[in-house]
């Protein structure tokens, strides 16, 4: 579904990702872990098409298309979804009108007619239950005045409504208490299907207790330095990231 080859990228002239390689097949959940500053969020933003990031090398194929050549909105229309680490507050735009605009944009691209108000509410009502939110969230401006947990749940609500083929969850677990984490994880699990895929970007192993990954990768200094099954996450939890640092130092001659 997604094939990342030798991807190098940076922001403001600073190189962050250095020849990242990653293969994601339909039905899989990949966890990308790593210490702060390793490039996890950059990877997420680059895949979603944030214009502030510059790709300096490599390529990303997504369902046979050149993902990097597509502007952010076209990636979204093709089924790519990023759950933001810091969801943006949008004054004066209600959650409902935002979701409605996004759903109808997608439907228009897929050749479906727009949903009328009743159909839209029917769809949203059902998805609200997934993340245990009530209808009052719909009339509030997007993320404005939301608690940290509400913002993250709102991201998953959008994901549930838009039904992406490929979702990147950027530190969706950070700042969540255990109850909110369970709600979010449960929502994500219900959205798992054999024909979609998820990259979970996280610092901690905690969320992986609730969303079980098929593969775990360690991103370090802009490179994927280790890939294994879910047991790697537990090892990282136990030992921290220092041993990775040492391993990387041992395999790379200084000055290289």
């Amino acid at each position: 579904m997604l094939s990342i080859r030798d991807l190098s990228a940076g922001v403001e002239g600073k190189t962050i990702l250095r020849r990242v390689n990653l293969e994601v097949r339909a039905g899989e959940v990949h966890a990308v872990m790593g210490p702060n500053g390793s490039g996890k969020s950059t990877l997420a933003q680059v895949l979603a098409g944030h214009p502030a990031y510059t790709v300096t090398g490599g390529q990303v194929r997504y369902l046979g298309q050149d993902l990097l050549a597509m502007p952010a909105e076209e990636r979204a229309r093709a089924g790519v979804f990023l759950a933001f680490q810091y969801p943006v507050e949008i004054a004066g735009v209600s959650n409902a009108s935002f979701l409605n605009a996004a759903v109808n944009e997608l439907r228009a691209r897929q050749g479906h007619p727009e949903l009328d108000a009743m159909e839209f509410l029917g769809l949203v009502d059902e998805r609200l239950k997934l993340v245990e939110m009530d209808r009052s969230f719909l009339s509030r401006p997007v993320n404005e005045g939301f608690s940290g947990g509400e913002k993250k749940r709102n991201e998953i609500l959008q994901m549930a409504v838009l039904e992406p083929k490929f979702a990147i969850l950027d530190e969706t677990d950070s700042g969540l208490d255990i109850d909110a984490l369970k709600v979010v994880a449960q929502g994500v699990n219900r959205l798992r299907r054999p024909d979609n895929a998820i990259i979970l970007v996280t610092h901690y192993q905690r969320i992986l207790q609730y969303i079980e990954p098929d593969h775990v990768h360690v991103l370090f200094d802009g490179r994927i330095v280790k890939s294994a099954g879910k047991e790697l996450a537990l090892e990282l939890e136990r030992k921290g990231y220092d041993w990775i640092r040492e391993e990387v130092a041992a395999t790379q001659p200084t000055g290289a």
Binding site: A48, H50, V88, A91, G92, V93, A102, E105
Partner: peptide, 24 residues
């Protein structure tokens, strides 16, 4: 970018945000 990442065209995103500014 947030709005574009949900599939809205750049111009649509700008219009929505401008309407948001006026909504008050």
């Amino acid at each position: 970018f947030y709005l574009r990442s949900r599939g809205l065209a750049d111009a649509t995103a700008r219009t929505l945000l401008t309407l948001g500014f006026a909504r008050e």
